[in-house]
Every structure is written in structure tokens, then in C-alpha cells.
């Protein structure tokens, strides 16, 4: 059953891609995917936290007593989330303002605690690093995909670094339902349906 290092990395990209396969971490998936830019920002911040916490948990896995492991993981994760928050505030303030409360909420994103508990606490540093990286990138790509669908249909534009790029042409009537909250659920449902359709073969 032992997987190669490449497999550890790749599994988070497709086979176990968090929002679509494991259906985990849906709060940010639904809430911030109004624009591609937000999706990327959220994904990168989550990846940073995931990789750092995975590495640290794997390093300390023999030291942490099992009775207080969850508390220790939360301390580790919360530390990295706060670091991410401070860094975003200092360097990408407009993005930080848009993501708002969802940056501190990365702490309770179950992908991160889930990977710490299910993977990093049982595996070596290198494997945990690759696992975190794979899941993080998978998460980022899923957010981007969902955000792209929603933004394209909802506004006709795709936003990268503050610049909306018009894709659909002037004939397009923005279907603004997609960038509203209920549109997020419907878009996610259709996306899951598509993933199952593709993955079932």
C-alpha cells in the first residue's frame, strides 16, 4: 500500500481533491468564489497554512502527547493563519479586504486539521510536505475553477490582479444570480455532478 512520493503529491490534485471529491472545506469554496482573484488569494493562503502546519506537525509528531494532539494542532494552525493574515494585510491589502473574515476562518477549515490528524501525524516530513502541497494546489485549482465559472456567467469578466478582463463580449447579459449566494450552491452542485460524470468511467 505504500505510495511513492509522487503519488502522495498527485492524489490531492485529482483523486482526493478537497472540495469536489472529499467535499471538505466548503465554507470558503462557497463564500469567496465570486471572483477568480479571490479564489486564487484564498487558495494560496490556505496552501501556505496547510504546507507549514503539515511540516510542523510531522516534525513534532513523536513529541506531541496523543491526548493533547488536537489542541497542539490548533495552536500550530492558528499561528500560521495569523501569520498569513498579517502578511496579507501588509502586502496585499485590497485582497485582504475582499476576503475579510474568511482569512481568520482558515483555522477551522477542516482540510487543514484533517490532513494534520489523518496524514501528517503518521508520516515523515517530506511526505507531509508533498501531501500538503498537493492538497493545497488541488484546493486552489478547485476554487479557481468554481470562481471562473461563477464570475464568467455572473459578470462576463474574469478578474486578475484588480483588472477585470472582459471575456464574453458586449452581447452577453450577465447572469448575476451566479455571483449571489444561492448561485454558489447551484454552481457547486453542477460542478460535483460534472466531476462524478468524468470520474465514474
Amino acid at each position: 500500500m505504500a505510495k511513492t512520493l509522487t503519488q502522495e503529491f498527485v492524489k490531492g490534485l485529482w483523486d482526493e481533491v478537497p472540495p469536489f471529491r472529499l467535499v471538505l472545506g466548503l465554507c470558503p469554496v462557497l463564500a469567496v468564489t465570486k471572483a477568480v482573484e479571490n479564489g486564487i488569494g484564498m487558495g494560496v493562503a490556505t496552501t501556505f497554512v496547510l504546507v507549514c502546519s503539515n511540516v510542523l506537525v510531522a516534525t513534532l509528531r513523536k513529541v506531541i502527547p496523543s491526548k493533547v494532539r488536537i489542541a497542539s494542532y490548533i495552536i500550530i494552525i492558528a499561528t500560521f493563519v495569523t501569520i498569513a493574515e498579517l502578511l496579507m494585510q501588509a502586502y496585499t491589502y485590497p485582497l485582504f479586504k475582499k476576503l475579510g473574515i474568511f482569512i481568520p476562518l482558515i483555522v477551522v477549515n477542516c482540510i487543514i486539521l484533517g490532513r494534520a490528524e489523518a496524514f501528517a501525524s503518521k508520516n515523515g516530513i517530506l511526505r507531509s510536505l508533498l501531501d500538503g502541497l498537493g492538497f493545497g494546489i488541488g484546493f486552489t485549482l478547485s476554487l479557481m475553477a468554481l470562481a471562473a465559472v461563477r464570475e464568467l456567467l455572473g459578470t462576463g469578466d474574469l478578474t486578475f490582479w484588480e483588472k477585470p478582463i472582459q471575456i464574453m463580449g458586449p452581447w452577453f447579459q450577465p447572469f448575476s444570480f451566479m455571483v449571489e449566494a444561492p448561485g454558489a450552491f447551484i454552481a457547486l452542485g453542477l460542478m460535483l455532478c460534472l466531476m462524478n460524470l468524468v470520474g465514474k468511467k
Binding site: 500550530i76 499561528t79 494585510q89 501588509a90 502586502y91
Partner: peptide, 25 residues
């Protein structure tokens, strides 16, 4: 001991980063 060390480490790391980024923020 483990929790104390973790918390201390976390606290000091955050304090350091906070003071570094304060002016920029």
C-alpha cells in the same frame, strides 16, 4: 510542557512578525 513550549513558540513568532509588519500595515 509540550503545550507551553508550543504556545510560547507561537506567541513569540507572532510577536516578531507583528512588529515587523506593523508599519507596513
Amino acid at each position: 510542557i509540550v503545550l507551553t513550549i508550543l504556545a510560547t513558540f507561537s506567541g513569540s513568532l507572532l510577536a516578531a512578525i507583528h512588529s515587523k509588519t506593523k508599519d507596513r500595515i
